[in-house]
Computed example of a mutant assay.
Amino acid sequence: MTKILNVRHLGKSYRSGANRLNILDDISFQVDQGDTFAIVGPSGSGKTTLLGLAAGLDYPDSGTIELCGMDLNTLNEDRRALLRNSEVGFIFQNFQLLPTLTALENVIVPLELQGSPNALEIGKELLRKVGLSDRMGHYPSQLSGGEQQRVALARAFSNKPSILFADEPTGNLDEETGEKVIRLLFDLNREAGTTLVIVTHDLDLAKKCNRVLRLKGGRVIADIPTEQLRV
């Protein structure tokens, strides 16, 4: 099985006044192509920091990350950006839609960056799949939280990513809306055959994945198949 993400001996710290705060300590794991993988742990355990490093949004202090066969340590920021735009999708807790663009325009941004001649058609089809055919011309401020996250879902899959990173994708949604978004996420993921990496504090969501990496105090305390997960 091809390893789409290979993290080895990762370390990250930040300066806090005169001290350095250790966030991640000797983190190693691998994710197979097509796998669904959850990263769980209490607040402050380093989940979001790890996700950002794995996606090439930040640089580690130590260790290596291979993403889609590329060693991120060898790539400058321009080449990292090209890799993300061609191979990576993102879903964030706070949606991160561009407020001056409509739902459809938000979805097709990655496609336009790639120069896709079919951007409009692809964007419309994805919004149809997430149930927003009648909201394409609406701006984020005119959409509910659940609708905004569905637009973000459509955008995340628009460039047919090899791997999708989701950071607390239901964190700002009520339970019922969150469940709908997660069903859509896994349905779209299954259809596209995308590798899915989710950061979450929600163990019910984590249990929908094949594997779970558990962090505590910036260290891995478990890396197990989901059926072995205990609350």
Rank of each mutant, 00 (worst) to 15 (best):
N6F: 10
V7P: 11
V7S: 00
V7F: 08
R8V: 10
H9T: 08
H9P: 03
H9C: 04
H9K: 06
L10F: 00
S13K: 12
Y14Q: 06
R15K: 14
S16P: 08
S16R: 14
S16G: 14
A18W: 11
N19Q: 15
N19G: 15
N19A: 14
R20P: 05
L21G: 07
L21P: 07
L21N: 12
N22F: 08
N22C: 14
N22Q: 15
N22T: 15
I23P: 14
I23S: 12
I23Q: 09
L24K: 12
D26G: 07
D26F: 11
I27R: 11
I27S: 10
I27Q: 06
I27Y: 12
I27F: 11
S28C: 02
F29Y: 06
F29A: 09
Q30A: 11
Q30S: 10
V31T: 01
V31Q: 02
D32K: 10
D32P: 03
Q33R: 03
G34D: 01
G34M: 01
G34F: 04
G34C: 04
D35M: 04
T36K: 05
T36C: 03
A38W: 09
G41A: 05
G41R: 09
G41Y: 05
G41K: 04
G41N: 02
P42S: 02
S43Q: 00
S45N: 03
S45L: 06
G46P: 09
G46N: 00
K47C: 00
T48N: 03
T48Q: 04
T49R: 01
L50G: 07
L50R: 03
G52S: 04
G52N: 03
A55H: 07
G56I: 11
G56K: 10
G56W: 09
L57V: 11
L57P: 09
D58G: 13
D58N: 14
P60F: 11
D61Q: 09
D61H: 13
D61M: 07
S62M: 13
S62F: 07
S62A: 15
G63M: 06
G63K: 13
G63S: 08
T64H: 12
I65R: 12
E66D: 01
E66S: 10
L67R: 09
L67C: 05
L67W: 01
C68T: 03
G69F: 00
G69C: 01
G69I: 12
D71E: 07
D71R: 15
L72V: 11
L72K: 10
L72I: 13
N73H: 12
T74V: 08
L75Y: 03
L75T: 11
N76E: 07
N76V: 11
N76R: 12
N76F: 09
D78W: 03
R79C: 05
R79H: 01
R79D: 02
R79Q: 08
R80H: 02
R80S: 01
R80V: 04
A81K: 06
L82D: 12
L82N: 10
L82T: 14
R84Q: 04
R84H: 07
N85L: 14
N85D: 02
N85F: 09
N85W: 08
S86E: 03
V88N: 13
V88D: 01
G89K: 05
G89I: 08
G89C: 13
F90E: 13
I91E: 08
F92H: 04
F92C: 07
F92S: 10
Q96P: 10
L97R: 06
L97M: 06
L98V: 15
L98Y: 13
P99D: 00
P99I: 08
T100F: 01
L101V: 08
